[in-house]
Amino acid sequence: MAKVTGLEGVVAAETDIGLVDGERGHLIYRGYWAKDVAVHFSFEEAAHLLWYGELPDEGELFRLKERLQAYRELPASLPPLLDAMPKSLPTMSVLQAAVASLTEPDGTPAAWPPAPSQAERLTALLPAIIAYRYRRSKGLDPVQPHPELDHAANYLYMLTGTIPEPAHAKALTAYLILGMEHGMNASTFSARVTSSTQSDMYAAVSAAIGTMKGPLHGGAPSEVIAMLEDIGTVERAEGWLRAVLEQGGRLMGFGHRIYKTKDPRAEALRTVTEKLTGDTDSFKLALHVEQTAIRLLEEYKPGRRLYTNVEFFAAAIMSAIQLPAELFTPTFTAARTVGWTAHVLEQAGVNRIFRPQSVYTGPMPTLGD
């Protein structure tokens, strides 16, 4: 049996939800370019597309928004649980425990098969849980959800207590949409494996969160922000980047395990960031660093095809909306919940338990006479 570590190149499932083509730089959500969905549609429309297979009409969108708004209210069991967790516990661990503790709204235990209503509820609850925990950790009172704000705007409102600028809500919406789905990544695989055992939706998403919090998966743009801040000016960019490459270092925000050409998510976020930041010095710096780094990477690492990834322009957006660095990965998690739950629903429709093989490399017992 040929050894394939990490299941590299192994097809684990068929899916109608999304396509990631790293060679061509394609990311598709159910027949739509993800970058177009991010620029032209709302969070709620994109979520409906992934859950139900099509963009909603006006009535479907109105009803979905109503349901998501109703699901934002934390169940009575959650605030005491969140308050009881140690302040030192990372937000991702808090999220994992909170989701695992959920029952159905009527208090009954969740059961298999999963339901679309559970997907909607989890997607609405995750930002509310993050905001509650963040504000309590800072000694601030929680902010109740705003009944007139859409998903992304309400998240920022619950974090700050202030209605966000429309441009900031639009930028965060694009980031959340582009974070919803990305093929059979590690956390999505975790969700599908858990669901394949006929465990419930909340357990599957809790497992996915546990996978996402690993630093090799749930990466955040904080290191890109630190790099741009350290470079500081356009004039310093080339010398700074060359120094890193001369020492064999890595340029943060460049290269991706899957994409061998431009990351389509980065292209969409660049478009949104241009509208958000206009002609500011910070965006000029980001664009100059991008162009210079790509040129130098081809010089120092020819043929590697290292381009800007989604984290680079996510850094620009996170800086613009002033999202605290500690919330980068939790916010990514809130976005990916849509994709996880879509995959859990799909898995239930064609379910067969995952049971891959392993290659034994240990000693064999000594054979008797």
Rank of each mutant, 00 (worst) to 15 (best):
Q118D: 14
A119M: 02
A119Y: 01
E120G: 10
R121K: 10
R121N: 09
A124W: 11
L126I: 15
I130M: 13
Y132T: 01
R136F: 09
P142R: 10
P142V: 02
V143L: 06
V143E: 12
P145T: 09
P147K: 09
E148I: 00
L149P: 01
L149S: 07
D150M: 06
H151S: 06
A152Q: 04
A153W: 02
A153S: 07
N154L: 02
Y155C: 01
M158N: 11
M158L: 10
T160E: 01
T160L: 00
G161I: 02
I163E: 15
P164L: 04
P164W: 10
E165L: 12
E165V: 00
A167M: 14
H168C: 03
K170P: 00
A171N: 09
A174Y: 07
I177W: 14
L178N: 07
L178A: 05
M180S: 03
E181C: 08
E181L: 08
E181M: 11
G183S: 12
G183A: 08
M184N: 07
N185M: 03
N185S: 11
N185F: 00
T188K: 08
F189K: 08
A191W: 05
A191I: 06
R192C: 06
V193M: 12
V193Q: 09
S195F: 04
S196K: 09
D200A: 11
D200K: 04
Y202V: 01
A203K: 01
A208M: 02
